[in-house]
Amino acid sequence: MSNDTRFHDIKDLPSTHLLGSGTPMCAGCGGLQAVSQIYDVLGPNTIFVNAAGCMTLLSVYPFTPFRGSWLYTSMGSAPAGAQGVRDALDILRDRGKIEASEDMQVVVLTGDGSAYGMGLSATSGAIDRGLDFIYLCYDNEGYGNTGQQTSAATPHAARTSTSTGAAGYPGFKKDLFSIWVANGASYVATVIGTEPLDLARKIEKAAKLDGPRMILSLAPCPTGWDYDPKDSAEIGRLAVKTGVWPLKEFADGEVTHNKKPRKRVPVVEYLERQGRFAHLFEPERQDRVLADIQSKVDRYWDAVGS
């Protein structure tokens, strides 16, 4: 990978930023951290087609942080909006009505609520049609914009505002990465804002490819996960170090893990820093649940091998 990239070192990352400041995202937002870095790599010739979620509030009249374009659609159909824009730009180019320089990269911007649930049918349809687009999901593991209710991205045992009992959310986080791979995507990658070099290389690569491409970013969320905003980076790093958030990519028919933690930190260190898992430690430590979470992570990495 390193030969194909302009990002060899963290010093190669942009030192000034494209996304406008002054957005209404929460202080310490891990999703905005990733989106800002991604925008730096994609550049302003990008149209974001947005699904309802926290980031719908990036553009509130008359304020927008974008230097390119933006179209809000609905919660259920952002990929179809991307289809309309992509097809229309192709038609205009075919007819010579616009220059290649007026074309844009079409990027769906969605939270996990739409990506793992309501928008999945429209997403699958777009992959089926081989739509040439990037699908960017900031995954904060719940319906964050409405106060962190359980979504299909919520991890096992997390407390949400609709799973407030001692066991937290009884279900398990859906494997959206594998769904995209199985559906026939051309490129799928996980990223996180606290690994900016890995992120920049993946966005650079995705931008050069064609077809349906997904970037799935874990988005540590001080508000929904209940921790101090200054800890956002630390929590993101722990998500990688504990193996909870594997950094990987799918391309050319193969899944590659970009960062295999040599000695994985116990998941407890990730969980205990977040209020949404506090009930696993207080009033009593729920050792069995903690062991289950750890063993699920262990099984994942055992399957990956070394």
Binding site: G20, S21, G22, T23, L58, P62, F63, T64, P65, F66
Partner: peptide, 9 residues
């Protein structure tokens, strides 16, 4: 472009 910068967060 980037009119959000007029918002003093």
């Amino acid at each position: 472009e980037a009119t959000s910068e007029q918002v003093q967060t």
